[in-house]
């Protein structure tokens, strides 16, 4: 069946990544959810979906439905919640799903329950170190070296069974499970290797949920910061004369916005470090890095060279 109006949907039953424009749920007649299908990353809307992947998830769900020991994804909240409960919107026009998320964020802030970690919803499986096969959503295509998954012993071609309490049939299930995982701590994972069932706890470091938010309509204008200055990368000759390494961040500030001037930056300052580190990147890369790694309200420290002397300038990030 197909639902096209988010305002009629019990958001606690159909809990998903509200920045998506498509998602499929699989449930039984008692409204217990077997699985989800959908999801994307910053590279494109179809980056993590395929018809073959949908078919695979459907077959996996049918096998679970026919199984004697059925597993269901747990509900986060027992009672129903509708968009009108958080937005005050009682129908009429169309509501985008991401607007629901914005309203939920606003309500959390009003209730004093907002935390920075809540910006990083529905992290990618890569955040724990696994890349899942697009056409077989619970099969590990690759394990990232030195990741939590690698340390736990997960290997390519392993089949994820559960992540935390969530049974895994698809990429979307993995994202849902990771969304419910702690911001820092341990996460139980079970998987199948051939016919052998294996399990381990993953160690999740601080900020493990951080993911590129740039595609998300719900946060694009609210949480993603913009560096209030741009500039030109220094030439090789200029770098040599200042004793800077080739490739090191070094750009001459220009096109400063008021908030950059208010923080103490001046046109002509040469930005050479961020939070006492000297990354290898161009000014363009640096601006993208700021948008990807920080949130509105974060304070960064830029080190600039002014008249040949280093000066540290704290700068609180804002939107455009």
């Amino acid at each position: 069946m197909r639902l096209t109006r988010i305002d009629d949907v019990d958001l606690n039953l159909f809990e998903f990544d509200w920045d998506l424009t498509f998602v499929a749920f699989f449930l039984n007649a008692e409204k217990k959810v077997y699985a989800r299908y959908g999801g994307r990353d910053a590279t494109g809307a179809d980056s993590r979906q395929s018809l073959e992947g949908l078919r695979y998830t459907m077959e996996s769900v049918l096998a679970m439905h026919d199984s004697a020991t059925k597993l269901f994804a747990p509900r986060t909240e027992p009672g129903p919640m509708y968009a009108r409960d958080v937005t005050g919107w009682y129908g009429g026009g169309c509501m985008h799903c991401h607007q629901v998320k914005e309203a939920v964020h606003d309500k959390l802030k009003r209730d004093g329950k907002w935390t920075r970690d809540q910006a990083w919803r529905f992290p990618l499986p890569e955040n724990i170190g696994v890349r899942l096969d697009n056409d077989r959503g619970n099969v590990v295509e690759a394990v990232l070296p030195d990741s939590a998954a690698a340390q736990a012993g997960i290997q390519s071609d392993d089949v994820l069974l559960t992540v935390g309490p969530v049974p895994i049939h698809s990429f979307a299930d993995a994202q849902f499970a990771l969304d419910k995982a702690p911001a820092q701590g341990r996460l139980s994972v079970a998987w199948l290797r051939g016919t052998e069932r294996l399990a381990a706890d993953l160690d999740l470091p601080r900020d493990w949920k951080k993911t590129d938010l740039s595609w998300r309509a719900s946060v694009r204008w609210r949480l993603i910061p913009s560096l209030p200055l741009s500039g030109e990368d220094l030439s090789p000759d200029d770098r040599r004369s200042l004793g800077l390494l080739e490739g090191q961040l070094a750009f001459r500030g220009a096109r400063l916005k008021d908030r950059a001037r208010e923080a103490g930056l001046q046109a002509g300052d040469i930005v050479v470090a961020l939070n006492d580190r000297t990354p290898n990147m161009t000014v363009s890369d640096f601006r993208a890095f700021i948008r990807r790694e920080f949130l509105v309200g974060d304070t960064i420290t830029l080190t600039v060279l002014r008249d040949g002397k280093p000066i540290k300038i704290p700068l609180t990030l804002t939107t455009q």
Partner: peptide, 15 residues
């Protein structure tokens, strides 16, 4: 779903 004993696939989509 109750009548047929089959699971339900629910698609939520924007347009």
């Amino acid at each position: 779903s109750r009548r047929t004993g089959k699971p339900l696939m629910v698609v939520i989509r924007c347009v």
